[in-house]
């Protein structure tokens, strides 16, 4: 069954008429992980935000978006608001700026859980304790009572994943979740996504320009360039046999960097 279907999505700037995403269509099945790759400015984030109808006011979109056969593009703003968080979760690139800097971490989490499930603070705390353990956050009590600036980017990233786990959405949209992190935190966060895929039946849209990570966790890949989908298909097929020049270029660039790295290190480094 198709979980998400995006048909002829087009996003443009109202004032200039500048088209940011051209006629884009793709589908996502239950439990699948779709990676959207491409250089910065290729329209990856705008595409993912268009699904949640969260782009800035100066961007407009047309096209059809169906979640479990429900037309999201026709919903009122109020109904769409209920879908966000509950059915469609987003994990942002920079954990350090994703939480209100003047509130304790728990404030956002409790508010979100209260909005969707009507849970009291106690119930929310219980639920969060469980999911925080799953994403390897120790001392959950302590973390909940910290301010964002007192935690690291990786911890905040995992906090967002933990909230997503508690919400049990149909689709988790992760917008460059590893880009702002150092290598060790990157590894941990990617590991969390792999665990989520194994444990839950949640589909993931994973936006990244890191092909190594994409190869590790994605089933399907969508390659974007200048707001257009230039190629899409199974991850194995695309890596083994890229059709479009741009995809070939991306894979070759990564290969070149790897070769150089191996040469410098003088040994066989698994990549």
């Amino acid at each position: 069954m198709k979980l998400l279907e995006v048909k002829h999505l087009k996003v443009w700037e109202v004032q200039t008429g500048n088209v940011i995403v051209h006629d884009t269509s793709f589908t996502l099945e239950q439990g699948q992980c779709l990676a959207i790759v491409g250089e910065s400015g290729s329209g990856k984030s705008v595409t993912s935000r268009a699904i949640m109808r969260l782009n800035n006011k100066n961007l407009q979109q047309t096209g059809e978006i169906f979640l479990k056969n429900e037309a999201l593009h026709l919903l009122s703003e109020k109904h769409m608001q209920r879908k966000r968080g509950k059915n469609l979760c987003m994990i942002l690139q920079n954990g350090m700026t994703a939480f209100d800097p003047s509130c304790l971490i728990k404030v956002h989490l409790y508010e979100t859980l209260h909005t969707h499930f009507g849970w009291s603070e106690n119930e929310s705390e219980q639920a969060l304790m469980q999911v925080m353990e799953k994403v390897n956050l120790k001392n959950p009590q302590e973390i909940l009572h910290k301010y964002p600036h007192q935690l690291s980017g990786g911890m905040l990233q995992r906090m967002m994943i933990a909230l997503a786990l508690a919400l049990e959405p149909d689709i988790m949209i992760a917008d460059e979740p590893t880009t702002a992190l150092d290598t060790i935190s990157q590894y941990e966060v990617v590991q969390q996504f792999i665990n989520i895929r194994q444990q839950m039946n949640c589909a993931i849209i994973f936006i990244s320009h890191d092909l190594g990570v994409v190869r590790k966790i994605a089933d399907k890949v969508l390659v974007m360039k200048d707001g257009e989908v230039v190629e899409q298909g199974d991850v194995q097929a695309i890596f083994a046999n890229p059709q479009h020049d741009y995809t070939k270029y991306l894979i070759a660039t990564r290969g070149a960097i790897n070769d150089h790295f191996k040469k410098v290190m003088g040994e066989n480094v698994p990549c």
């Binding site: 969260l54 966000r84 968080g85 509950k86 469609l88 700026t97 994703a98």
Partner: peptide, 25 residues
């Protein structure tokens, strides 16, 4: 335009709660 506003909206928080966060800051 801050990220926490986007994340608040993406989490499905009602607009009045988001406005309170913005006002606070």
């Amino acid at each position: 335009n801050e990220d926490y506003v986007l994340y608040g909206r993406a989490s499905g928080l009602p607009e009045n709660k988001i406005t309170m966060h913005i006002l606070r800051n």
